[in-house]
Design a protein around this nucleic acid. Sequence first.
RNA 1: GGCCUCAUAGUCUAGUGGUAAAACGAUUCGUUUACACCGAGUAGUCCGCAGUUCGAUUCUGCGUGGGGCCACCA
Length: 784
Amino acid sequence: MSKPERKKPQIDIHEIESRWLSYWEKGKTYSFDPKSKKKTYSIDTPPPYISGQMHIGHAFSYSQEDFIARYKRMAGFNVFYPFGTDDNGLPTERWIEKTKGIKSKDMSRNEFIKIGLALLKEKTPELIQDWKNIGISADYNVSYSTIDDNTRKISQKSFLDLYASKLIYKENFPTIYCPECQTPVAQAELEDKSLSSQFSTLKFKSSGKNLPIATTRPELLGACVAVFVNPKDKRYKEFIGKKATVPLFKHSVPILADESAEIEKGTGVLMVCSYGDKYDVDAINRHKLTPKVVFNLDGTLNSKEYKGLTIKQARSKILEDLESKKLIIEQKPINHVVNVHDKCGTEIEFLPTEQWFIKILDKKTKLIAQGKKVTWHPQHMFKRYENWIKGLEWDWSISRERHFGIPIPVWECPKCNLVIPAKLSELPIDPTETPKKCSKCNCQAIGDTKVLDTWATSSLTPQIAASLIKSKIKIPYSLRPQGHDIIRTWAFYTIVKSLYHENQIPWQDIIVSGFVTLGGKAMSKSKGTGISPRSVMAEYGSDALRFWAASSKLGEDLDYNEADLIAGKKFITKILNASNFVFMNLKYQSKMPKLIETDRIFLSQLNKLISSCTEAFNEYNYSKAKLETEKFFWQVFADYYLEIVKNRVYQGSDEEKASAFYTLYHSLLTILKLSAPITPFITEEIYQNHFKSFESVDSIHISDWPKPIPIATHRHDDKIWEKMTEIIYKVRQAKSMAKQPMNVPISLSLIKSEQSLLSGVLPDLRAVTTAKELETRKLSIKFL
RNA sequence: GGCCUCAUAGUCUAGUGGUAAAACGAUUCGUUUACACCGAGUAGUCCGCAGUUCGAUUCUGCGUGGGGCCACCA
């Protein structure tokens, strides 16, 4: 006879999730309470670009910061967790253009920003829904866009303040320049790229002799202003002080001795051009040479018959011409690494333009010291910050020759060159739209056409978010969560700005999360290795996704494996079933009854878990907390305690039942609370269904973080628990080896000392092992 | 070339100066009044070499191999 099939409806996780999402939204569960007397815990949330969909890496890192936010909220803090969006960059500009079918350059900046803001207002709710759906418990009412009026005002004010305190200056100087985007860029926006190229040795002439010079950049020949040799290099001693003739271009340049010329490199002779690289910039300054710039700002050449050609075209044309005039001595293909602009991958140039800079080079030591005052998690991430500062060679170039962005709020008089900063009351302002007279000579001043580097604004997120609410959010914030890829930008620039504006560090702690990888390599949309969190959530649910995100420790990369999502899904099912069991027979009682020994000892184990999880969360070690809770729930609570207590729940005396009920209620509630930061949906579901009527707090997520349950403890508690579970384990093993069912009656033998150690828990032990007989001998199991 | 980081079961990850761990996967049983989205078992592992130590997977050094950052652009 087969048993009747028990058909249970599948758990509808999506229904559960959407139900609690709207409950939290309606109840404003996560809103910051300005009137609260609790201590504030403030988070400088990373504002995502919303021009694209959420990436699995976002889901990973935002989940991790949310674990902390949720823990702190339960631990009694008034959590300030704003949510901004970063809409002030190229990706957003392109997104607005594409969605609206317009071109930024066809209209005024203000007009474009206005259209953009309207579009953002319409689309943002839909786009940040992904963040809500994975359960990010930010206060979405405290929100900003990095292009909105308030932000523009704060960003422009920052510029004006720093200008007033002489930390910002304008200079015409060869700066890192992207010919594709036609704008200067900062050192932090450079990336390495390996390129194959021709390494050509060219015939320079001096006093009738050949002077061979190797180069990968023949297009710069026209810009050659000097030739360097090392004074110690015997081969070229005779040339020092003479002139060299540049092949093809035929102008003559001085041959100078310079220690920086490396004897071993190339031919030992090098040409100095304006400007091939940072070295050239230095060299030309050092020897006070007059630069000859051959590139236009649009990346074309301006000299001779090469006029109008792009750099690449000029390179091959010049090589052809050199070849036909037999001016190439040797040529070989090489691979070398060049700096490219991170946004477009174009090789950068050094071109002299007039730009705005924020002073940072003279503050390196101070900035390192500021970084040291922040507590970094993991600690070694500070090294990256420090190394970056040590390697800095340029002040922060903050002006961009782009159309969309926050305008630089100054005018300049074309006659007397007086710089007129905007007044604070005028902000936000576009100086190209508001005429201004020069205060000195009364002629029409010209509004600056440049915009600010987006980092110049996003480095102000603490100030921006704080401005959104009336009550004071102090700087330093408690926490900055972010990725390690933007330590040199976002973290660094934010530290710069708080130093200059507040003379403070921006936050006490910084947590740096790792990446999601695929086969050890970073995922990338362009390589088609991106995983959409939407599809993962559709299959496994948000809690499972978060459970997975909690499985590696802070700062570590996690290799994506779909199979790993199963663990979270199973956890959800299991805890739901366990809760059903607990409440199937439970009668609630508020007072602690006289506890049966097993229950008291089990609770002592639970107390240890509470302490260690609390400690782990305080150290941002959410993965340890999650692992221990999961382990306890599965291996202590479900596998052992529930099995033990079952017998009493079904067949116990009133006293035995009362003790079991109390213990079940509080241990399950504790496990739920410890899990709540990681899996907020299922824990809320169970809390609301079973606990709320007794607990009175509206949501588990604003309930108190568990404290150890006040019970008596005895010296041998741990030992008894260990021994008891060990015996149960051995009995199960014996039954399994003997291919016996678990409910087969046995005779259990224990030595006297074990029996006396276990005397308090013996009834439960006998029941769970189905030991009908107990003998006093060495541990053995006999089947009856 | 410099700096940082990692190396643990077939896979992905915890962890520890003294017996190495969870999950997935594999495999053997079982269906006991929460759970077949189940339960109970079994097998399987610390990159190599040297040092410190009574004892090293753990600490130190070197090597090898991944990952990252920076520099190198003649």
